[in-house]
Design a protein around this nucleic acid. Structure first.
Length: 477
RNA sequence: GCCCCCUUCGUCUAGUGGCCUAGGAUACCUGGUUCUCAGCCAGGAGACAGGGGUUCGACUCCCCUAGGGGGUACCA
């Protein structure tokens, strides 16, 4: 049977790391088995407009490179892919259960139920539905209808053990009496979550339900529904809940736990994919820096852990750096151009040089901002640090010697620049900061930054030599 | 209240009764990379939540406690 997985967020706000991790695992697993990954929006409960949230989620999935085989905007044979557009299907299925005697109409109003719950809470009693409409005599039902009472439809849950399986935790058991008869269709005709997922997953032929562990306790209800509908349940895989840095719950809004923040900081998308997959999972090889291809080849539901992992933004950044180190120059050029275009006008060779240098040192793309800010603008030599450095005894001589060495270069490469710089240093007989600082200050106006040869390489021969020329003049003055 | 799930270095994890004087990664500290920051390389410190069992032997199995997560909704 072909593997089919799904990601079913409700389109409220932005994707947080926990949702994203669920999406990642579903996608990876589908790709691993040549299956289908479907996106579905669970929006039955939402009256506000959700269009922007929907687009935000799709955009986030695209950024992570999680392409969908079916879903909103791409379509597919099992649509529609929004619950709000599938309302008749839920009604039909609920009626099937009703006529089979597996469900019943409940005439209790929301207010009555709430009042009873409050009362039960007060005397520390049982909060579950008491089953009072379960076997209502016909006359009573008719009287309620006559009174104009609306009814919801509840699923009949008989007492006794319910055994269900989770791929990660194994066999689990709950007792029917702990669940109670739950609502599947509200009195206004909308389905409840537990009913809608089952109908959708069934109709969409989902084979593996991979979702957060928060849904573990919903699973027996859903299993019961599958049986009642005469269908074979999918395999359930409940991923441990992702926790905020420090251990708290992952809140829906908090910026630091939103996927968006990691994108804006310039984390490499493949690294985010990699990092998210490493939560509760590890490669059998022990390697941690994994390409998309390796992730797909190596995902294995049987290597998933049970404990709830905490987000570690530092490790995320490290991984991002590792992915940049493995990135192609061409791709990095595109990323850099996109990020820096509005602040700097970058020439072709300059962009290439920047990419070559930055590939070896950045953790996240935003690190490039600082480097460019430091190197690209004309430094001006009037700042106090520069004047101080250029005022040192041998400053002018050092700059002149470096300029002479570099201007004789046939090839302006990082290697030749570095070798020449070391050679000149030896010849001139000045070392350490007395040697480096005058050159550095002249080139960038600061005494701190990337390696000197790299700075010269990015600036190119013409600009480097010109800046040095002015440095000599300033030092001489 | 009741029910379910979880608990290895700060963090992510390896580990399925002897291979564990518990391995890796990150973060941290130290040294190197003839300047700085970053990167990179090398080294260091750092954990089986606590208590009872079972067993010749327990990080691994069972029970209790504590802590965390979830459910008990006409929320998802």
């Amino acid at each position: 049977m072909k593997v089919r997985t799904r990601f079913a967020p409700s389109p409220t706000g932005e994707l947080h790391l926990g949702n994203a991790r669920t999406a990642v695992l579903n996608w990876l697993f589908a790709r691993r088995h040549g299956g289908a990954f479907v996106l579905r929006f669970e929006d039955t409960d939402l009256e506000r407009q959700v269009a922007t949230a929907e687009r935000g989620i799709v955009r986030a999935l695209d950024w992570l490179g999680l392409d969908r085989d079916e879903g909103p905007f791409v379509g597919g044979p099992h649509g529609p892919y929004r619950q709000s557009e599938r309302l008749e299907m839920y009604g039909e299925h609920a009626n099937r259960l009703l006529s089979a005697g597996l469900a019943f109409r409940c005439y209790c109003t929301a207010e009555e139920l709430e009042a009873r719950r409050a009362e039960a809470r007060a005397r520390k009693g049982d909060l579950r539905y008491d089953g009072r409409c379960r076997d209502l005599p016909r006359e009573v039902r008719e009287r309620f209808r006559g009174e104009g009472r609306r009814s919801s439809i509840r699923f009949r849950v008989d007492p006794g053990p319910i055994r269900y399986a989770d791929r990660i935790r194994g066999e689990l058991t709950v007792h029917g009496e702990e669940i109670g008869d739950f609502v599947i269709l509200r009195s206004d005709g909308r389905p409840t979550y537990n009913f809608a997922v089952v109908v959708d997953d069934l109709l969409m032929e989902i084979t593996h339900v991979i979702r957060g562990a928060g849904h573990l306790s919903n699973t027996p209800k859903q299993l019961l529904l599958y049986c009642a509908l005469g269908a074979a349940p999918p395999e359930f895989v409940h991923l441990p809940s992702v926790l905020s840095p420090g251990g708290g719950k992952l809140s829906k809004r908090a910026g630091a736990t939103g996927l968006r923040a990691y994108e804006e900081a310039g984390n490499h998308p493949d690294a985010v994919l990699n990092y998210l997959s490493l939560l509760s999972w590890s490669s059998p090889t022990g390697d941690e820096v994994l390409s998309r291809e390796r992730l797909i080849a190596e995902v294995d539901l049987d290597r998933l852990g049970v404990a709830n992992p905490e987000i570690d933004p530092e490790k995320m950044r490290w991984l991002s750096g590792q992915h940049f180190r493995r990135e192609s120059i061409e791709r990095l050029e595109v990323d850099l151009a996109g990020r820096l275009a509005d602040r700097f006008s970058l020439g072709r060779t300059e962009l290439r040089a920047l990419a070559e240098v930055l590939r070896e040192r950045i953790l996240v793309l935003s690190d490039a901002d600082d480097v460019c800010e430091l190197i690209l603008p004309d430094p001006g030599l009037s700042s106090s640090v520069v004047r101080e450095v250029l005022g040192e005894p041998h400053a002018g001589r050092v700059i002149a010697a470096v300029r002479e060495g570099w201007s004789a270069l046939e090839q302006w490469t990082r290697e030749t620049l570095r070798e020449t710089l070391i050679e000149v240093g030896r010849d001139v007989g000045i070392k350490g900061r007395a040697f480096y600082h005058p050159v550095r200050a002249t080139l960038t106006g600061a005494v701190q930054g990337p390696d000197l040869p790299d700075i010269a390489y990015i600036l190119g021969a013409e600009r480097t030599l010109e800046r040095l020329r002015r440095g000599i003049a300033a030092a001489g003055a």
